[in-house]
Amino acid sequence: MVLKSDVHPIKSADDVVRVRQVARQWAAELKFSLVDQTKLVTATSELARNTLEHGKGGTMRVEQVENGPRRGVRLTFEDNGPGIPNIERALQDGYTTGGGLGLGLSGSKRLVNEFEIKSEAGRGTTVTIIRWK
């Protein structure tokens, strides 16, 4: 169940910094430990950068979600960019098309509890992550 939600644009490098701060605030509000906050914010940074650089910009939806007794933060990164032709390969450590280290997707997956990626060539990419308290 979604308790509250908000949407933020990712159109510039400053927006990437801003959505990191948003993720931090929402995690702090649920009293995440410092390590858990740091993991969520770092994953946010990786995914927001992907949205900006590979997806040519998009949005981050932030939600406070509840599943039975658990509460968590769900983040959805959405773009209308070129999409990812081979998701399996994109999720491998070290695979990169952007000249980076290729840790963005695979690394952020390790930093959260739930990770889902949908992509369609020419239509865009949506990545959803949840970190539970």
């Binding site: 410092l34 390590v35 906050q37 740091t38 993991k39 770092t42 990786e46 450590d93 280290l101 840790l103 695979s106 690394g107 952020s108 390790r110 930093l111």
Partner: peptide, 14 residues
């Protein structure tokens, strides 16, 4: 480096 940052960085794969 803060401990939380170190933990996250290694888990990230760096």
């Amino acid at each position: 480096m803060q401990p939380a940052v170190a933990i996250t960085l290694v888990e990230l794969g760096m």
